[in-house]
């Protein structure tokens, strides 16, 4: 059986709240290697849960999550951590940049757990910042950067380690339209270098900028 780069089979996720919250129900989804996909749906539809499962941040209540031919439920916590450090890059709506570090240091921190030497981390951080057009801002701290620039630093951090897949959760949610557009361009560029890129968004207009849209509603993939 040939599996897609990311493959979900009958995946359900139930949060043990009172009453239990069914975030995903029997989801089947294939995302091929090198695809540029937008997962789109309204707030509370289960998009972020989907990202957490595909990004090995969480485990499903039922079903199988396959990534690069490996079924995630068979991995230990340490193996999942290693998979995240080597194969997966994340971009979040809130950027999560460390305020006391420069842009370069923030990007280099993204490769900390990959076991790379500091000099190599710095070199790759500089190269990644150049890829997102922020080479000149490498020595600036997040407080000295605009929101769009901060998000591009976060993208540089996600792609600097050469991941196989990049997940972006509402990457333009906190940005104006022009900055959002630049962020999309950076994600598209990352995709052109070979990474599978999955973007979570509630913005249909933004989703249309990507090659494929996956619609999620009430925990189910609708198309």
């Amino acid at each position: 059986m040939r599996l897609a780069h990311l493959a979900l089979r009958q995946v359900s996720k139930v949060y043990p709240t009172k009453p239990p919250l069914h975030a995903l129900r029997d989801v089947n989804l294939d995302i091929e290697r090198g695809e540029l996909v937008a997962v789109v749906g309204p707030s509370g539809s289960g998009k972020t849960t989907l990202l957490s499962l595909m990004g090995l941040l969480d485990t499903p209540t039922a079903g199988e999550v396959w990534i690069d031919g490996v079924e995630a439920s068979g991995l230990t916590e340490a193996q999942r951590s290693r998979a995240r450090s080597d194969q997966i890059g994340f971009v979040f709506q809130q950027f999560y940049l460390l305020s006391s570090l420069t842009a370069r240091e923030n990007v280099a921190t993204g490769m900390l757990y990959q076991g790379l030497a500091p000099t190599e981390r710095r070199a790759r951080a500089d190269a990644a910042l150049e890829r997102v057009g922020l080479a000149a801002r490498a020595s600036h701290r997040p407080g000295e950067l605009s929101g769009g620039e901060q998000q591009r630093v976060a993208i540089a951090r996600a792609i600097a380690g050469d991941p196989a897949v990049v997940f972006a959760d509402e990457p333009t949610g906190a940005l104006d339209q022009a900055s959002g557009r630049m962020v999309v361009d950076c994600l598209r560029a990352a995709n052109q270098t070979g990474a599978t890129v999955v973007v979570i968004t509630h913005d249909l207009g933004l989703a249309e900028l990507f090659d494929r849209q996956v619609h999620v509603l009430d925990g189910e993939v609708t198309g």
Binding site: I67, D68, A83, D86, R131, A164, M182, T193
Partner: peptide, 23 residues
């Protein structure tokens, strides 16, 4: 590659090491 609209050409890094699949 297009990065940041009017930004300069992007630079692709060499792979970190001999690439290994997830398994």
């Amino acid at each position: 590659a297009k990065a940041g609209g009017s930004q300069e050409d992007t630079q692709v890094l060499a792979p970190i090491a001999v690439p290994a699949p997830l398994n």
